[in-house]
Design a protein around this nucleic acid. Structure first.
Length: 311
RNA sequence: GGUCGAGUAGCUCAGUCGGCAGAGCACACGCCUGAAAAGCGUGGGGUCCGGGGAUCGACGCCCCGCUCGACCA
């Protein structure tokens, strides 16, 4: 059809995964600088928001000038963003990269977005009015009633969802009622890891070292002006999704005088550390990830492997 | 120096009348298909400050000591 087709077999996709503060971006940047035909694709649920720069550890303007970056600054922070939108944009972006005969280097820590991209998850649609109705029912008749309904409508989905998990319960029913199809009928589920042409390289640190890196990074974000950034964004308001970003959420609470500054900072560090652990737990389930135990320098220790995977 | 209070899980603290020690947070582990930096679940943890005493039995009562805090000198 076009030259993109011809390049398909020649281009590679490599993904750098791992927890926050593990050095993924630095590795990717080094690899892209060494290979002019590499373009970086951010796989990060918060870097898509314009203006949320410091707190999301977004690549610097210089880095973005030096190397093509994608999936960054896609929407205003007043807007919502979802996996489905990420998936759609990702398809367009990677097609463009391949048309140019370039390689896509996926970098980021949002596990679900990686799965949506790499495994082309069959995401069910959205039925906001049904969801709104269900959210009300979750309060009034209660979760028990909703769960029983899911058990009768989609037993398999019910078996995979804890009765107290309102969010997933509502979503499953929303899909069942909205699509007329069982929620569980969409794809094989996240526990299935089919073979993929995407080479995934994971950065792993000892837990205590990672905790130190997280604390240091939070402090360095604060020194770089995170509070001012949060206050600037607060003027126009943040969407529900953007407002829950680590660092932003806690500093907004501080500005509402709900916590002291020191408490807010402590919370950012603790929650970021917990997030990092959750990321590790997500990615380590994927048997396709090749893990590298970092000793000292992520760039020196991982960049050569990334370049090798790019052929 | 004296009086009073406190000392229990990594942290902050509950613990009735003496009957095998509890919560929240932290931590560990699991789950996750349109909020995913979100959401949900499971679990391991104790010299009850130390020593002595009365009691069938003490975290709890009595005595001695240690540490911290407040107040009085």
């Amino acid at each position: 059809m076009n030259t993109g087709r011809m390049h398909l077999t020649a281009t590679r996709r490599v993904a750098v995964v791992g927890p926050t503060a593990s050095g993924k971006s630095a590795v990717a940047m080094a690899a892209a600088r060494a290979r002019p035909d590499v373009e970086i694709v951010s796989v990060d649920s918060m870097q898509v928001y314009c203006g949320m720069d410091i707190g999301t550890a977004k690549p610097s303007a210089d880095d973005q000038r030096a190397v093509a970056h994608h999936m960054i600054d896609l929407v205003e922070p007043t807007q919502e963003f979802t996996v489905a939108e990420f998936q759609r944009s990702y398809e367009l972006v990677t097609r463009g990269i391949e048309d140019r005969g370039h390689h896509a280097l996926l970098v980021g820590g949002t596990g679900l977005y990686h799965r949506a991209a790499i495994d082309h998850l069959d995401l069910p649609g959205e039925w906001p009015h049904i969801r709104a109705k269900l959210q009300l029912e979750a309060v009034d008749p209660g979760l028990e009633t909703l769960y029983e309904r899911l058990v009768s409508v989609d037993p398999l989905a019910a078996a995979r969802i804890e009765p107290t998990n309102e969010r997933r319960l509502v979503r499953a029913l929303e899909v069942c009622e909205g699509s007329g199809r069982q929620f569980s009928s969409y794809g094989p589920g996240l526990e299935s890891y089919p073979p993929s042409p995407v080479v995934q390289i994971g950065l792993m640190w000892p837990r205590d070292v990672l905790a130190t890196r997280v604390a240091e990074r939070v402090q360095s974000m604060l020194r770089a002006g995170l509070l001012a950034e949060v206050r600037r964004l607060a003027e126009t308001g943040l969407s529900k999704t953007a407002a829950q970003a680590l660092g932003y959420k806690e500093l907004l609470a501080y500005d509402r005088s709900e916590v002291t500054y020191d408490e807010a900072v402590d919370q950012i560090i603790v929650r970021t550390r917990q997030f990092a652990v959750r990321q590790i737990r997500w990615f380590r389930r994927d048997p396709r990830v090749r893990w590298i135990n970092i000793e000292h320098d992520p760039v020196a220790e991982v960049c050569p492997l990334v370049l090798a995977a790019l052929v």
